[in-house]
């Protein structure tokens, strides 16, 4: 099995953007599972309807780290409405593509963002369901 990561993927892997935690986060989302070998955790701060700050932590492969990193770059400073529309496809395109076997890692990035937003709304006392939608389980190993 040989596989080529793009320069962008290797760069985001080697130099992840927005790595870390936000102790005073407004929303925290964690998706994935240890059994699957993929866990993403996203911390967001929300101000005036925009993502004012974001951090991530990831347990996973090169693609998992790169998609997490790129996802945080794509949502930082953006209005929530736009962030809700972010798809894994957009993350993959921003990275100049991923090998087919690695596309599922980008799905986790999209879900981590939605999970963080859902947490934000829950903390506000707002039902996240209608806004964020359902977050399907990506991993089927238990």
């Amino acid at each position: 099995m040989s596989m080529l990561y793009s320069e962008k993927v290797l760069d985001h892997f080697a130099n992840p953007r927005n790595l870390g935690e936000l102790p005073d986060a407004d929303g925290v989302g964690e998706v994935g599972s240890p059994a699957c070998g993929d866990i993403m955790k996203m911390y967001i701060k929300v101000k005036d309807g925009r993502i004012s700050d974001v951090r991530f932590k990831t347990f996973g492969c090169g693609a998992a780290v790169a998609t997490s990193s790129m996802a945080t770059e794509l949502i930082k400073g953006q209005p929530i409405d736009d962030v809700l529309k972010l798809t894994n496809k957009a993350v993959v395109e921003a990275l100049d593509g991923l090998p087919p076997v690695k596309i599922h890692c980008s799905v986790l990035a999209e879900q981590a963002i939605k999970s963080a937003l859902a947490d934000y709304y829950t903390r506000q006392g707002i039902d996240p369901g209608p806004i964020v939608g359902a977050i399907p389980e990506a991993c089927h190993i238990h």
Binding site: P16, L19, K41, K57, T58
Partner: peptide, 8 residues
């Protein structure tokens, strides 16, 4: 490990 939610 420092960047891993699992290690945390």
């Amino acid at each position: 490990r420092n960047m891993s939610p699992l290690w945390e």
